[in-house]
Structure formats: C-alpha cells, structure tokens
Design a protein around this nucleic acid. Structure first.
Lengths: 227, 227
DNA sequence: CAGTAATTGCACAACGATGTGCAACTTAGT
DNA sequence: ACTAAGTTGCACATCGTTGTGCAATTACTG
C-alpha cells in the first residue's frame, strides 16, 4: 500500500457527464481499452487539444497505461477515427432502400448519421483540422458523396429546391447537423427526428410534409430494429 | 550586411492566398500591426493551433516582431476577438429596420453576419474552444440573442416553421452559415445571398419567395451603401 | 495458490512553444 | 544627415507534452 492505488481512482471524479448506465467502478474488466476510447472520444470533442494526461485521468487511469494500449497519441486518434468511420459508414450504408423517394432517402440518411452521434462529430472535427494524419478527410468522403447524391436526385425530380448546387447544400446540411449534435451534448433537447426534419425543410420540403415523412421513416426503422 | 536581412522577407512566400488587391511587398508602411492581425485571422482559421512563429512568418515578419505589437499570444487572440466582436456587432445592429417583415429582418441579419466573414467564423471558433479567455462566448451572446428573437417573431406570426424552438433553429442556422463561410474559403463559390436564402428556406419559407425577398433586401442594402 | 497480464509510479530525454533581453541594423520623419 | 522607432537575429530560461524504461504492485485466470 505504498501509495493510494486501488481505491482512489475508481471514483476518480470524472468531472464530465458520462454515458449513463454503468457501475461506478468497473475497472480492469476485460477491456480497459474500450473505456479509454470512449472517454477519449468525449474528451476530444470537448477539447480537441486534450493531452494524453487529460484523457488518461478522465478515464480513471494513469497516462502510462494509455500508452500500454496505444503506442502514440496519433495511434489513439487513428483508432478513434477508424472506429468512427466504420460506425458511420455502416449506419449510412445500412440505410439504403431501393424504393425510397428522395425525401425518405434523405430522412433515413440523416437518422443514420445521427445515430453515429459523437463519433460522427468527432470525425468531422478531425477532418476540419489535421489531427492524426491526412487520411481522415478521405474517411468522410463516402458519406459526403452519398449525401450529395441523395440531394442531387431529389433536385432533379423537383422535390428539393435547387437554389444551390447539391454539394454546397450537402455541406450546409452537414454543418447544421453538427451544430444540432453539439447542442444535444450540452443542454438543448433535440432528437434525430428534429434534425432530419430540419434537413428536409432546408431542402425546400414543406415543414408539415417533412415531419410526416420523417416520423414515418423513423417509425419503420425502429420497428425494423426491434424485429 | 551581417545576414540577409532587409531584402528577403518582403517577398516571403505568403503561402496562403490573401485578400485581393495589395502591392506584393508593402512593408513597414504605417501599420505592420494591421497586417499581423489580418494574417493571424486567416491563419488561426486555417489552424486554430498555429504558433506565434507560424503567424509571424506568414505575415513576412519575425516572431520577435509580433511580440513587439502584442505582449502575448493571448493578447493577440484577444485583439482579434475584440476586432471581430466590434465588427459583427456593428454589422448586425446596423441591419435593424423598423418596417421589416420577419423575412426581411432575417435576410438583413444574415447578410450582415456574412459581411463579417472570417471575423465571424473566427469568433465562433474561439467560442467553441476556450482560446484566449472565457469571455469570448459572451461576445457572441448579443448576436445569438438577436438571431433568436428574429426567428421567434417570425414563428409567432406564422411566417416561419416552428417544428423546433427558436433557440435551436438559431443554432442550426448558425452552423449552416459557418459551414458555408468555410466553403467559400476553400473552393466552392457561395455568396451572402445564397446563405441568406438557405436560412430562410430552412425556416420554412418557400424557396422562390426566399430568393425574391433576399435579392430585394440585398439590392436595397447595396444601393444604400453606395448612396 | 501460482503464474501471468495489466496497471502503476516514478524518472528521464526530447521537442516545441512561449516570452524576454539585448545588440545590431534598417527605415521613416524632420 | 540625424534621430527615433521599428525590425531583426540570436540566446536563454521556462513550461507543457510526448514517448520510454523499469521495478513494484495489483488483479485476473487456470
């Protein structure tokens, strides 16, 4: 008992709110790595310049331990980015439906992106700066391309407004989505449906119809998930 | 001629594109300070973690010289923030018109915010992180409050959609605006009018009407400026 | 209970960034 | 031409961060 090891850093004042349900001190378990990743995610969203030490102690761990899981900060970031990439890409690709109207397609896309939540936001945050390596922006390319395509299709069929070219609209929508995602991490109460509706409205779909479409799609998605 | 002083840093490869018209090497002039501020603005937008050295050499100046104008990095950031605050606040307050409809009001507001351009974006970038001091978020509060109020008025009069509360919509619109502002700094061609139209559409105004309103307001603003 | 993997506490080197001091130099103003 | 302000080049101390090494301590597993 040389120092104050075992008992004091389990309840290490996390300081920041954490994902809800979990026993106060479940250390070691099997994957300390998972927790480090999770904490690093929220911590890097809060402050993109968080040091390894910040992250470590936020995870109730010593800095040295983090290096036991990730050889370098860059590796940690890369791991985070990769996790995010897989997650987002999977969600978006899983949202493909052949019979979808442009409105339904966009709604499903937005709902899927929202599901990524922090992961999506972090990836965009990484892409804007140059954290990790230069390959991160490329990770987002497929998602962005898909978004652009969806919008373009809707514009051609006259369902979406075309006062701006599809790539620009996609960017604007992404910015809006991130802003809302950020709001939900602070105080405001916003849901995936809200965000999807906002996207459709910004694309020129009447609000009433947007709400109708999105709620319908959301319901069907949900029912499908609980099949 | 001990070293290679006088002649070599005038044509110091600025590296990044700068505000259009300016003689290639206008050093000393009267206000090297102005240029440092301008360069720091664009440089900090590009990379929020740009070092004093990065900024200095991007301004064609040595690091030590920057410290001759600003006692510390924090002071430089504060100066930049203050400049931005004054600029944005002035633009937004100058956009007040009593007879404006909610649509016109929002259009004027957006056009004014866009005029701030980089300054607006930088201020938001500062507010999101904690650069400089903690007072920066407060600088944006008046602008945000005004934005929220404009939207709320429009919602009450039924002109704007109310599928989301005004504060949330204001945030979403801000995110969109910043995203478009960022796009214009890279490659895409977006104008203040485009952005204002996007805002109105996102608020549920039909695209055709949004375009009509914004172009009218923009034209009147412009005519007024060239009075 | 023994063995093994993980965690911990230091200590340390290497960098990069900040901020300051000072002497030499260049430029602008009168 | 002279002066004063501004700029420059370096040197230096200080800090915070990164990444490693290693021995001691826990915690899990068979």
């Amino acid at each position: 008992m040389q120092t104050k090891s075992g008992a004091e850093q389990a309840p290490a004042e996390a300081g920041h709110a954490e994902a809800g349900a979990a026993p106060p001190r479940r250390r070691h378990a099997q994957s300390n790595r998972e927790r480090i990743l999770a904490v690093a995610r929220t911590e890097l969203i809060r402050d993109p310049d968080a040091s390894m030490d910040d992250i470590a102690r936020a995870a109730g761990v010593v800095r040295r331990t983090v290096y036991g899981h990730f050889p370098s900060r860059e590796a940690l970031v890369a791991g985070l980015a990769e996790e995010a990439r897989r997650d987002i890409l999977g969600a978006v690709e899983g949202a493909q439906r052949d019979g979808d109207s442009p409105e339904e397609a966009v709604a499903r896309f937005d709902l899927a992106a929202w599901r990524g939540g922090d992961r999506y936001r972090l990836l965009i945050s990484f892409a804007q700066r140059n954290l990790g390596d230069g390959g991160i922006p490329a990770m987002l390319a497929p998602v962005r391309d898909r978004s652009i395509e969806l919008i373009a299709v809707g514009q051609r069929s006259g369902v979406f407004a075309d006062y701006l070219p599809a790539p620009v609209l996609a960017l604007a929508l992404e910015g809006m989505c991130v802003a809302l995602l950020q709001a939900v991490n602070e105080d405001v109460r916003v849901t995936a449906v809200d965000q999807a509706v906002a996207s459709l409205v910004a694309l020129g779909v009447p609000a009433a119809r947007a709400i109708e479409v999105v709620t319908r799609v959301a319901a069907s998605d949900e029912a499908e998930a609980a099949r």
